[in-house]
Design a protein around this nucleic acid. Structure first.
Length: 207
DNA sequence: CTCTCGATGCGCT
DNA sequence: GCGCATCGAGAGA
């Protein structure tokens, strides 16, 4: 007899529904820990558990791309939740966010690190020369390992496309650590807010 | 291991 | 023109 995991049919992966993202951004950030980011590339599944994230919330957050109001670049942050906000930075890197809260309010969660699960061989090819523990331990590194670029900006993560998030192993409260966000500029408040969430002791957390 | 620094494209002032 | 939600090479300890 085939065992059946709770709430899923074998071969028919469930996807986090839009309502998951339509909530308070700090709640979404916290609950994204442990979930599985999946990228379908040429029919292959590349995936990893999310082990580090950061929240960016509203125009009053001086570290957010939305701090200076709506522009062409950050428009996706103002759009409906459950979509990918992918931006290009430092002339060579991409970073992936998921849009949260209600349409019209700019907020998102930056995916900063994954623990690789499926498609390691392909990830090693896309991150040639790097040891396994450096495949996905950073926001731009994981985009490289999963072949995510600006073409994914605005993509609906709830629509059965090439990028989505599946429920996976929840992370216990005792395993969750918070702290100030990494690499941001902004005012004193932005530099102090504990809006970074990560799995304590996980070897794939960035830094 | 740690630290420093250059790469590099583009959105925004 | 400036500055960036980063990374990787190279130097030193």
């Amino acid at each position: 007899m085939v065992s059946r995991k709770m709430g899923r049919q074998p071969g028919l992966p469930s996807v986090l529904p839009r309502e998951f993202y339509t909530r308070d951004t700090l709640t979404v950030a916290r609950e994204l820990l442990g979930q599985r980011l999946v990228r379908l590339l040429a029919g292959e599944r590349l995936s990893g558990r999310i082990v580090e994230v950061e929240a960016y919330i509203g125009e009053t957050d001086r570290a957010s791309h939305a701090a200076c109001g709506r522009t062409a670049r950050n428009a996706v942050m103002y759009g409906p939740p459950g979509h990918a906000y992918v931006y290009f930075i430092y002339g060579m890197h991409h970073c992936l966010n998921v849009v949260t809260e209600s349409e019209g309010f700019p907020a998102a969660v930056l995916i900063r690190a994954l623990e690789p699960v499926e498609g390691l061989t392909t990830m090693r090819r896309l991150r040639r020369g790097r040891p396994d523990h450096e495949l996905t331990n950073g926001p731009a590194r994981l985009c490289q390992a999963l072949a995510i670029d600006r073409n994914f900006n605005g993509l609906d993560l709830c629509a059965g496309g090439p990028l989505f998030i599946e429920p996976d192993l929840p992370v216990d409260d005792e395993e969750v650590e918070t702290g100030p966000r990494v690499g941001v500029r902004g005012d004193e408040v932005a530099l102090t807010l504990p809006w970074r969430f990560f799995v304590r002791g996980n070897p794939f957390v960035s830094q």
